[in-house]
Amino acid sequence: MTRESGETEQAGVQPPSTARVLAQLTRPVLRALPVRGLAATAAVALLIAALPRLLSDEPDQWSALIALRAAALTFALGLAFVLDDPARDLTSSVPTRRILRTTLRVALVAPFAAAWWTAAVLLIPSKIRPPVGDMTLEAAAAAVLSLAAAAAALRFTAEPEPGQRVAAGFLVIALVSPLALPNDWGMYVSPTEKQWGVGHDHWAMVLVGAVAVWAACGPEPVRRRRLIPT
């Protein structure tokens, strides 16, 4: 008891600055990240990106595009688990806001994600590689969309680990959307088709929309409510 009150006096009445909180949080958050899951996902995603090389001596552009898109989707599925927090019932009541903690999680994953994407792109032979900038936009949109879905699941349900449900839903949507979306939107076309440019405008919109959803779903809900009864 006495030691705690002593610490409070040292820190003063002012709450610690955000930067300091982040610095102090870095190590525990890093420890709480689903590192093994992310690493396994990234490894499988790299395997998918390598499939054109592995399956054929002379892979074509079509298989490269499919492999790179599937790799991006796989990594995005792994990202759906990043916000899982088994101790959510305890951490929801701490004074540090949730948006700070989740942003820190994502910031810690981001360099890893960037390195992974570079490796995935390099695994595709340069001769058949689709335009890297546009593909990066697609991958970023998928990744942020997955994170935004996870944030939304945290915002609207009381589940501590919604990653599994989010990943399932995300995968289902990802499978159906190429069939359901009109071809004119050009989101799943190949680089040789004329809708490629329009499609990447749409991907940019998805990215912006996902960032907005992510930001909007940042705060911890004040009241618990259940959308999906379990």
Binding site: P34, G37, A40, T41, V44, A45, L47, I48, L51, P52, L55, S56, P59, W62, S63, I66, A67, A70, L73, T74, L77, G78, A80, F81, E161, G163, Q164, A167, A168, F170, L171, L175
Partner: peptide, 23 residues
């Protein structure tokens, strides 16, 4: 028995089944 295993395995299966017959 890990929650992240199945979506990832599903994509791997799907891509393999799409790309393998072509080659």
């Amino acid at each position: 028995p890990k929650p992240f295993a199945i979506p990832v395995a599903a994509v791997l299966l799907l891509v393999f089944s799409v790309l393998a017959p072509a080659s």
